[in-house]
Design a protein around this nucleic acid. Structure first.
Lengths: 217, 217
DNA sequence: TGTACATCAGTGAACGCGCGTTCACTGATGTAC
DNA sequence: TGTACATCAGTGAACGCGCGTTCACTGATGTAC
């Protein structure tokens, strides 16, 4: 659906755009945020970037390739931010783990379009080795955090496999992000608490069961 | 994308179809399973059901209305199955809770198209009162289960609000379903265990922390 | 049981539209000398 | 510094296509009597 008030094209000062690749990515991010990863056309991205419909072909094979690139870049930033939040487990495993959770939701909230490109497109990860590697780097942060947490636990509680713990944490983060941090027009429900508080409490309850407790005074 | 081998239309024995509404729903479910809830057109549904492109307008305002109906019907079946799995908390709260988790994943696995229509469309629930009611009935089962579980806990552990527990459980179920029970062409990863086992272990760890334990002999 | 008629659920043609994609082209930029 | 030229990144026109939607129509079904 287009508005009749859409400008058909902004004139540029130069024949060449200079930064069209980045401009296409930025335009696609806006369109994803507005209509979802499947809610617009390649031509629409070109229009939003102020170029002719043929121009994007100089930079991306098709719309799918553009969205895959957005997902890859998203995974990269995502991994960076999870890494920074984990901060090598400082000041303690439990706190660092909760910081990962906060960073996870912060990313989904700040970059819903990239998040959607990463998790809502159904692209087969196996077919794009760059995409796969980027996504594994992000998951790797959660996995290493789980390993550290499993080693740091104090009591003689259950000793579950760290990979399983990582998958639980990831699923909880993703579940909360997908259900409660949706797009503006999305599935959001009325909630008794913020997604951030919900996730923090969930992680605490879960990790306590593994014997991971806050460090005493 | 269509195959050139698609039959353009199957002839019918009668001028009237007789069951077109249900046929359109069934055809749309197949198309969602194959291409996602935004991966096909209204005309494509008509073609798949063997009628002219104008026929669906007798039954649905547009494609969105058809998909919303699929979501509504999906929530209804979903709620029924969660209800049956909960079985009024028998034989005990923990087991009944795990049965809800199993039923949740079973639904996502058996009816991925309905599940996608329910959770991956971004329709605003507030605008469709029938859709909202159906989804609240499904969530209501999880909420009542959480209430029963919070009342049944044995030790003097934490006493968290049941609504929060329900949201945690729902998010964990949805996270696992979305990440690991995707469509055939989807985001699936290699996993050390089945989604079902992953969820069962996650629920166990989480609920134990609330003092909910398996009934002793 | 038969007949007239209203209602309903389909048809198919028509329309304008935007899309994907290609192509020869054009003009800006960078580089060799 | 200037000039010739190669390269590159854009243009705009063109094409065939499927879509959404409407419309007068048609033929099957149900019902009153």
């Amino acid at each position: 659906m287009r508005f009749t008030t859409d400008p058909p094209r902004q004139p540029r000062d130069s024949y060449h755009h200079g930064n069209l690749r980045e401009a296409l990515i930025a335009a696609a991010l806006k369109l994803i945020a507005a209509s979802g990863p499947a809610g617009f056309s390649f031509a629409e991205v070109a229009r939003a970037a102020g170029v002719s419909a043929a121009a994007p072909y100089r930079h991306f094979r098709d719309l799918k390739a553009l969205i895959a690139e957005i997902a890859r870049l998203g995974y990269d930033r995502f991994a960076d931010e999870l890494e920074r939040a984990w901060n090598d487990g400082a000041p303690d495993a439990l706190t660092a783990f909760e910081n990962i959770g906060k960073a996870y939701l912060a990313f989904a909230r700040r970059e819903p379009a990239a998040y959607a490109a990463m998790f809502e497109t159904g692209f087969p990860l196996e077919e794009d080795v760059q995409l796969l590697r980027a996504s594994e780097r992000a998951f790797g942060v959660i996995r290493r955090a789980a390993e550290a947490a499993c080693n740091a636990h104090r009591t003689a509680g259950i000793r579950p496999p760290p990979l399983m713990v990582a998958l639980h944490v990831w699923a909880l983060c993703h579940g909360i992000a997908a259900l409660f941090v949706g797009r503006a027009d999305g599935h959001r429900r009325r909630m008794p608490m913020s997604p951030e508080d919900l996730l923090e409490a969930g992680l605490l309850i879960y990790l306590q069961s593994l014997g991971l407790t806050a460090p005493g005074p």
